Computed example of a mutant assay.
Amino acid sequence: MGVAGKGGLIPEGMLDTVKEAIRAGMSIISGLHEFMSDIPEMITMAEKHKVTITDIRKPKPRHELKFWTGRVKNVKCPKIAILGTDCNLGKRTTTRMLMHALQQAGIKSEMIYTGQTGWMQGSQFGFIFDSTFNDFISGELEDAIVRCWEAVKPDVILLEGQSSLCNPSGPGGSEFLLSGEAKQVILQHAPGRKYFHHFDDEQLEIPAIEKEIQLIEMYGSKVFAITINEQNLTPEQARQYKQQYEEQFGIPVIIPLQEGLEATVPLIQKITESYED
């Protein structure tokens, strides 16, 4: 189900398409908040056609959920959070691109997924942020980081961010900075996007990027690079924002889909070396 509608509900008419897929012998994996496996008709059809329905956003049983314990302090490598100024901004894509760039440079890196697509793409460590009971988000994040460290001993752990600190519909970010102890941040921003995702009609404006940076710094973390999402921009406009932000903030600004993320490798190499010192 490569669909992420507002509120995670099944879009109108989608069930007919899913039924057609089941009749064709296809199993269903859904990342929606409305669960296919709770619909009696779908269960009956899946049994009849010998396929499975997997709702990956179903919350874990409570007895499997973890509270934050402080074990993250035993992780002896830097944690870098890839945060953003809004939802649906490409944070996961940037995180995966960064992981691959680091690995190609010989820096052992792992990604902690925090959304359903990261799970679908095969990431080994993580949890699904927005289907976890709020009391356990910090603990589930910590547990994923600790499991990653104990199993792989990477040089650096990358945390896929969710939403933004300023997004009133679902503020996110503090968990990565506090509970995940991410002291370094790459901030993803879409200069061509005026309103928060799904809130164009309400004209709910995204604050200036400097506000998000200031909030991150108030948590004791540092934004060491900015990445640009090119939505609603021409390539030339994206490059103009790149130059503007580099002059304004004095840090590297990267357009991942134009330039890749190799430019961050020496920066992260220095972070890992200083962490070891």
Rank of each mutant, 00 (worst) to 15 (best):
G2K: 14
A4R: 14
G5T: 15
K6M: 13
K6Q: 14
G8E: 02
I10T: 07
P11M: 03
E12P: 10
G13V: 03
L15G: 08
K19I: 12
A21N: 13
A24W: 05
M26V: 12
M26H: 15
I28Y: 00
H33D: 09
S37T: 10
I39A: 01
A46E: 02
K50M: 10
V51C: 12
T52Y: 08
T54P: 03
P61G: 03
R62D: 13
K66P: 04
T69Y: 02
V72N: 11
P78T: 01
P78A: 01
A81R: 00
I82H: 04
G84P: 07
L89F: 08
G90F: 07
K91S: 08
T95K: 09
T95Q: 05
L98P: 00
M99A: 15
H100T: 07
A101E: 13
A101Q: 11
E110K: 15
Q116V: 00
T117L: 14
M120Q: 12
M120E: 13
Q121V: 10
G122W: 01
G126H: 10
F127Q: 12
F129T: 11
D130G: 04
S131E: 09
F133K: 10
N134S: 13
S138G: 11
G139F: 08
D143S: 14
I145F: 01
I145L: 06
V152L: 04
I157M: 07
I157S: 09
L158I: 01
E160F: 04
G161A: 05
L165D: 06
G173W: 00
G173K: 09
F176A: 12
L177A: 04
K183A: 07
I186M: 11
I186E: 03
L187P: 02
Q188P: 08
H189T: 13
G192P: 11
G192K: 02
H198W: 11
F199A: 06
D200A: 13
Q203W: 08
I206A: 04
P207G: 05
P207W: 00
E210R: 14
E212V: 15
Q214H: 13
Y219A: 13
G220D: 08
S221H: 03
K222W: 04
V223R: 01
V223P: 07
A225V: 08
T227K: 04
N229I: 00
N232L: 08
T234L: 01
Q237G: 06
Q237M: 15
A238V: 05
R239E: 15
Y241D: 06
Q243E: 12
Q244S: 15
Y245G: 07
F249T: 09
F249V: 12
P252I: 06
I255C: 06
P256Q: 02
G260T: 05
G260P: 07
L261P: 06
L261I: 08
E262D: 12
A263I: 07
P266L: 02
L267H: 09
L267Y: 09
I268M: 02
Q269A: 14
Q269F: 10
Q269N: 15
T272N: 03
E273G: 04
